[in-house]
């Protein structure tokens, strides 16, 4: 066994890649854009606020991808949930009902995704791609593309624009979801079952793990978390719009993968996904500060995603698998 003498640090290298990249990019921006307000506390808090939705959906995204699956419906679920929630609020003014139905909707879509994958044997990519289009289309259809304003200020404060002391509620929500996600992933049997299912489904089955149930749970979680993301969109922008979360599925995948979760499944890091998400938000912010046109921003953003995933893949290759 030539590879058996590798040190522990070498094996874990790819897992920490995101933090190196994060710190590196931060330092570069701090130097280049320091005089343009990048390091301003308001600006930094703003980055966290803007990335909150992606960060939260990426918690569940880590579970989905660590289980070897993929969920492309999250952006569409967020949009549809925002529509549902704002319609319920305008008609009943019941925050409780709006949240219940909104998150319930996400969970049901997650369950449908899960069934398509586990019972009907569709590849997750195709199943969720089709579902994504159906949901996005429904979100446009429900009000014939019209936005639905939300006048319930309590709702908007709690789920969007409010602050607790100096801290925006969006940041609080992010922290809460990450605490729950990290505990669930790292400390419960469910987390282990997710990793085993993604790492070797046959072996997980031979170990008595109900891999169908595990995958279902991951998709349901992803749907519910995406719905909550939609609620935060509605709260932050005080309205429901069909266009919310367009392309979020890709941002979530990028955040999760940059965060050290393998697209093939079997490895994953929830906290890594947070850093992946904030890293992308930071880049976004910096490109705006640097006065790049939106066309240029898009190009640079894409390049940076490719670069960071390539770097962590290279780190993984060095590991010799």
């Amino acid at each position: 066994m030539p590879s058996s003498r590798k040190s522990k640090a070498d094996i874990q290298w790819d897992k920490y890649m995101v933090y190196f990249i994060f710190v590196g990019v931060f330092i570069v921006f701090a130097i280049i854009l320091g005089n343009k307000g990048f390091l301003n506390v308001n600006n930094l808090v703003n980055i966290l606020r803007q990335t909150a939705v992606i960060s939260i959906i990426a918690v569940a995204g880590t579970f989905v991808m660590a289980a070897g699956q993929i969920d492309l419906t999250v952006g569409a679920i967020a949009a549809m949930t925002a529509m549902i929630v704002s319609l319920i609020l305008e008609n009943t003014n019941s925050i409780f009902l709006a949240i219940l139905v909104g998150v319930g909707f996400g969970a049901v879509i997650g369950a449908v995704n899960g069934l398509l994958v586990t019972r009907f044997g569709l590849p997750a990519f195709l199943a969720t791609m089709g579902m994504m289009q159906m949901i996005r289309g429904s979100a446009m259809w429900i009000t014939d593309t019209a936005a639905v304003p939300i006048s319930n200020t309590t709702f908007c404060n709690v789920f969007g624009i409010g602050n607790i002391g100096p801290v925006p509620v969006l940041v609080i929500w992010t922290i809460l979801f990450y605490i729950v996600g990290i505990i669930l992933f790292n400390r419960t049997p469910f987390g282990r079952h997710i990793l085993a299912t993604g790492g070797n489904e046959v072996s997980a089955g031979y170990s008595g793990i109900n891999t169908v149930k595990v995958k279902m749970a991951a998709f349901i979680m992803s749907g519910a978390f995406a719905a909550f993301g939609g609620i935060l969109y509605a709260g932050r922008l005080q309205a429901g719009r069909y266009s919310y979360g367009d392309g979020d599925e890709m941002s979530v995948i990028a955040a999760v993968v940059i965060g050290g979760t393998s697209m093939a499944g079997g490895t994953g890091s929830v906290i890594g996904a947070l850093f992946g998400s904030i890293l992308m938000g930071m880049i976004n912010n910096a490109l705006i500060l640097a006065n790049l046109s939106s066309a240029q921003q898009t190009v640079v953003k894409g390049a940076i995603i490719v670069l960071s995933v390539a770097v962590s893949n290279l780190a993984q290759k060095r590991k010799g698998n």
Binding site: R192, A196, G199, N200, S203, A204, Y206, S207, T267
Partner: peptide
């Protein structure tokens, strides 16, 4: 193929 999750640690496999 059936007994182990090769990319996981000895511990993770033993407790699965």
């Amino acid at each position: 193929k059936q007994g182990l999750v090769l990319i996981h640690s000895l511990k993770e496999n033993a407790i699965l």
